[in-house]
Amino acid sequence: MTATLTRQAPQHAPDAAATLAASTPSWSRRAKNRAASAAVVAAVALTAVPLALVIWAAVERGSARLDLTLFTHSMRGVVGQGGGLLHALTGTLIITGATAIISIPLGLAAAIYLTEYAGGNKLAAITRRAVDIMVSIPSIVAGLAAYALFSLILGPGTRSGLAGAVALAMIMIPVVVRSSEEVLRLVPADLREAGLALGSPRWRVIRKIVLPTALPGLTAGAVLGVARVIGETAPLLLVAGFTDAMNYNLADGRMATLPVFIYTQWSSKGLDTAAYDQRAWAGALVLMAVVVVLQLAARALPPQIAKLRRNR
């Protein structure tokens, strides 16, 4: 009731107009206010313009090579014009898939432990701290760590898609843990208590009630995790290396990926530099399209959990 009262327009007494006129801000205060508003608009422009310019550059310079050959050919034996990024696209799908297979179960299980089992015990505190630290690992350091791990096991200098997937998993696991934990916390406690009160064991409650309820949010988190690692270049440049040919074997030898393809098309050009630049931009256009699709997919999911909360 009070809320509606305060929202009403003030009842103007006869002298209210005079009071209002007297309280109109001075010229300099209005000027400052206007300058601040202009600065805010400028800040929005400063954010939107680079994004627009990057997208425009990729479309303008990349569309020249957005042909069928690009998606049906690798760079094997190609010098100058022609060639494609099939090997890099395949490599990205394989490595990102492997990363997801490592990171999602592990990250989700850790998040379930943190929200459903741990309470406030010591292991939970350590795990949370570890996740905090892992989020701040620069991606190139994850690449170095994966390289160090694989050279301890397989000898120095090895490159493989699997090492790339392990490096990316170091980046993706903390992302999955954080987003899953956040979503699991949104599942209302009375749903769990209802299940437990009916005598279901905790694991059954999690499997039949908590996880299905949280599924859209968990999926969105996983998709955002994939979007986060699919554009990573530096770690893959170190440990997955680069090749011009197809390689379907995660465990054996260098595997090209889309971001590294873009980088190498620029960094090691042949004589016909325009052909290499066009391929780099075409690769950038494809990679951005993939990332945008993943973002939109993740964006389409969470409202379901919002709705679910409103229905409770």
């Binding site: 994004l51 990057v54 990729a58 979007a227 986060r228 699919i230 554009g231 990573e232 270049t233 530096a234 971001p259 873009i262 980088y263 620029w266 780099a280 931009w281 950038a284 990679l287 951005m288 990332v291 945008v292 993943l294 973002q295």
Partner: peptide, 9 residues
């Protein structure tokens, strides 16, 4: 979400 290699280019 724009990959850093694209920003580099």
């Amino acid at each position: 979400a724009v990959p850093s290699v694209v920003f580099g280019l």
